[in-house]
């Protein structure tokens, strides 16, 4: 009771949610997709760990980034991975990216009245070989985009991406037009800049950066070779390929 008396039963509601900070982002290219996230996990002002991944390889052509309430995020990724495994057993192939996106929407909406408190960004290669990014809200609204930031530093990163990826507020030189898709090296530079900027101005972002790069089948890899410590995570030959680049971010 608001009067503070004990004449009525006291109610204390258990809050099943918390926020664990961090930021994720994804950018689609013509024949590649880049999905990145920082590795800090925090609650309030405490850093719980400096390494808790929130970007996951789902298949050789799909990568999922999950941000929000970490326990929900981990459980959600686990359930998506389980559904993808069942799909492999039933169809003897990996689920296509667009189908994974629809699956994620259905799974999120299935919990409409007790939502997974998670923002999802799915990146990868579409069946026609183009790079794609799908972004979701916690209850499953989704759309395909060229780029998206989500999480604690969304408001810092997204307008920067509007400017650098979509060339918003920029005028192309006379007789020319802005490129529809940027080269991979430019995209990687923008991703790293976005995270160093977010780390500088947001306390919940930092520690480490994991950048997944998905390349369409048969695409040359030489523009990835310049990067220090690129790990290939592809499981099967002659298909789309997944790579991981890890970088340190400031830890303060």
């Amino acid at each position: 009771m608001p009067d503070g008396s004990f004449s009525h039963p006291q109610q204390r509601q258990f809050n099943p949610y918390t926020e664990n900070g961090g930021t994720i982002l994804a950018i689609a290219g013509k024949d590649f997709s880049v999905i990145a996230g920082d590795t800090r996990q925090s609650e309030g002002y405490s850093i719980q760990t400096r390494y808790a991944p929130k970007v996951f390889r789902l298949t050789d052509r799909a990568v999922l980034a999950v941000n929000g309430f970490a326990a929900d995020g981990n459980m959600f990724v686990k359930k998506v991975q389980q559904r993808l495994e069942w799909y492999r057993h039933a169809h003897a192939k990996d689920m296509p990216l667009g189908a994974i996106a629809r699956l994620i929407q259905t799974m999120l909406y299935g919990r409409r009245f007790f939502p997974y408190y998670v923002y999802n960004i799915l990146g990868g290669i579409e069946e026609d070989g183009t790079g794609a990014v799908y972004s979701f809200d916690p209850v499953g609204s989704y759309e395909r985009e060229a780029c998206r930031a989500a999480g604690a530093a969304q408001s810092l990163v997204q307008p920067f991406l509007d400017n650098q990826i979509y060339f918003k507020n920029q005028q192309a030189p006379a007789g020319q037009s802005h490129p529809l898709h940027l080269p991979l090296s430019d995209v990687l530079a923008i991703v790293i800049d976005s995270f160093t900027s977010a780390t500088e101005r947001h306390i919940e972002v930092g520690d480490g950066l994991e950048i997944y790069v998905v390349l369409t089948k048969g695409r040359p890899t030489q523009d990835l070779e310049g990067y220090r410590g690129v790990k290939e995570l592809t499981t099967r030959p002659d298909g789309d390929r997944v790579f991981l680049i890890q970088r340190e971010l400031k830890k303060d």
Binding site: N20, Q48, T49, R50, Y51, A70, N74
Partner: peptide, 12 residues
């Protein structure tokens, strides 16, 4: 590793 009443986990 750690786990709490919300199911939040991490290792460090």
């Amino acid at each position: 590793a750690y786990v709490d009443l919300l199911g939040t986990t991490y290792s460090s």
